[in-house]
């Protein structure tokens, strides 16, 4: 049987204190114990009501995030949002939202295994990211709460600023994890 290990496994399994300092003070920390639900609906009012009653969150405007306690809602497209929540609540909240949206045209899909969430921080963060992404990610152009679906290192990525000028959360498809780690390491040390 093949053993599949990704570059971030050593961090997850506790061999590292929790994060990896790559270079130039660029620190990568896997976001642990979080689940992801993809919410799709064109019935915004029904989705809004379901979210407010279940977790007290409002739908964010385009390119924005909203959060309340451990729940973060990221805008994806005009009819799609990504809900980040504690992993242990993924099934129960997903089922509760599905029940509330039973009569609306909506889909709730568990994306926890599809995407990898990383927090990248450090003084050289914007410079490193902007060498592989066409967006201006400096603090004044990418303020807290801003979300962007874009291309990072030639792969699709969701970037969002959780607050502060020196860290960005990055979600990528799990299959691109090795590529992203190699790209971050190569770019940061160049």
């Amino acid at each position: 049987m093949l053993e599949h290990r990704t570059p971030f496994d050593s961090i997850r399994e506790g061999e590292d204190p929790g994060s990896a300092t790559i270079a130039r003070e660029l620190i990568v920390t896997p976001v642990r114990d979080k689940g992801l639900l993809l919410l799709q609906s064109a019935c915004l009012q029904a989705l809004q009501t379901a979210l407010e009653r279940e977790i007290g969150l409002r739908l964010p405007p385009a390119q924005q995030a909203s959060w309340h306690g451990p729940y973060v809602l990221l805008w994806q497209t005009p009819a799609q949002w990504l809900l980040q929540l504690p992993a242990r609540e993924c099934d129960s909240i997903g089922a509760a939202l599905s029940d509330r949206l039973a009569s609306a045209l909506a889909a709730i899909t568990d994306f926890s295994d599809a995407l990898v969430a990383l927090e990248v921080g450090g003084a050289g963060l914007a410079d490193v990211f902007m060498s592989g992404c066409s967006l201006d990610l400096r603090a004044d152009a990418f303020p807290p709460g801003r979300v962007a679906r874009t291309s990072l290192a030639d792969v699709p990525a969701i970037l969002w600023n959780p607050g502060g000028s020196d860290r960005i959360h990055c979600l990528i498809e799990r299959g691109f994890e090795t590529h992203l780690f190699a790209w971050l390491k190569g770019t940061a040390t160049r």
Binding site: A62, Q63, P78, S134, L135, T150, S151
Partner: peptide, 11 residues
């Protein structure tokens, strides 16, 4: 119209 100005390779 939804995301603002972006570079051509994204399209």
């Amino acid at each position: 119209p939804w995301c603002g100005p972006r570079d051509e390779p994204e399209f």
